[in-house]
C-alpha cells in the first residue's frame, strides 16, 4: 500500500480529519481551498504533527500516535514539491538540485544529476540563481530537487496552480512521465477537477466542513 493515512489534526482552530488507503500510481486530495489539503501533505511529510492517527507510506509507519512513532521530516523519504516552490535563494540551480542528493538512497528513487536534468529539460539552467527563473522553469527545478533527494514517494501541492495554460500542459506531462517512467508513487493536492481526472487513479474528496 503506497499510502495508508488515517489522521485528525487541528489547523487554525479547525478540525481536519481524513482517511484513505491507496495503491494508485497517483492519489489526489481534491477539494476547495481551505479544506486542509496542504495540511495533510505537511502531516505526511512530518512538517505538521497530527493530533492523533497513523500515517504509513510504502508499508513503513511514519507516524503512529498510539505506538508513539513520529519520524522527523528528514527521515521520511517524502519528496515535497511546495506550492510556493521554496527554492533556496542563495544557492544556484545546481546547488539547489544537489542539496538533498544522496549516493545511496536505499529503497528510494535512484537518480543522477544529469539524468534528472535530461528528464526535466533543465540542463541549461544549472548555473542560474533561482530568482532569475521563469515560473515554469522554477517549477521543474523544484520537482528535480525533490526527485534527486532519493524519495520513496512524491508529494505535490497544487503543482499547476501558478502556471499559464502552455506551462501547465508541460508540467502535467512531466508528472505523467514520473508516474509512467519512474513509477514513483505520488500524492497530489488540487482543486481542479480536470487535472485530477487526468492524472490520478484514486481521488480522496476533502469537503470544506469536516468535523
Amino acid at each position: 500500500m503506497s499510502f495508508d493515512v488515517d489522521l485528525s489534526l487541528t489547523r487554525g482552530g479547525r478540525q481536519i480529519a481524513v482517511r484513505f488507503r491507496s495503491d494508485a500510481p497517483v492519489t489526489a486530495l481534491f477539494g476547495p481551498s481551505g479544506a486542509g489539503k496542504t495540511s495533510v501533505l505537511e502531516a505526511v511529510s512530518g512538517l505538521l504533527r497530527p493530533d492523533r492517527g497513523r500515517i504509513a507510506v510504502a508499508g513503513e509507519a511514519l507516524f503512529d500516535s498510539t505506538a508513539r512513532i513520529n519520524l522527523p521530516p528528514e527521515r521520511r523519504g517524502c519528496g515535497f514539491v511546495f506550492q510556493d516552490l521554496r527554492l533556496f535563494p542563495h544557492r544556484t540551480v545546481r546547488q539547489n538540485l544537489l542539496y538533498g542528493h544522496r549516493a545511496d538512497p536505499g529503497p528510494g528513487l535512484r537518480m543522477a544529476l544529469d539524468e534528472a536534468c535530461a528528464f526535466l529539460g533543465i540542463e541549461h539552467l544549472l548555473a542560474r540563481m533561482p530568482r532569475t527563473l521563469s515560473g515554469g522553469e522554477a517549477q521543474r527545478v523544484a520537482i528535480g530537487r525533490a526527485l534527486l533527494s532519493g524519495p520513496g514517494v512524491l508529494l505535490l501541492d497544487e503543482p499547476l496552480a501558478a502556471l499559464d495554460a502552455p506551462r501547465r500542459e508541460e508540467v502535467m506531462a512531466v508528472i505523467e512521465r514520473i508516474r509512467d517512467e519512474l513509477r514513483l508513487p505520488m500524492l497530489l493536492v488540487s482543486h481542479q477537477r480536470a487535472e485530477v481526472e487526468r492524472l490520478a487513479g484514486h481521488v480522496v474528496e476533502m469537503p470544506l466542513s469536516m468535523t
Binding site: 512530518g46 528528514e74 521520511r76 521554496r86 533556496f88 538533498g100 544522496r102 530537487r145 525533490a146
Partner: peptide, 11 residues
C-alpha cells in the same frame, strides 16, 4: 518555509 524544505530534502 525554506528550512522546512531543507528538512524534507533530508537535512
Amino acid at each position: 518555509r525554506l528550512e522546512q524544505a531543507a528538512r524534507t530534502l533530508g537535512a
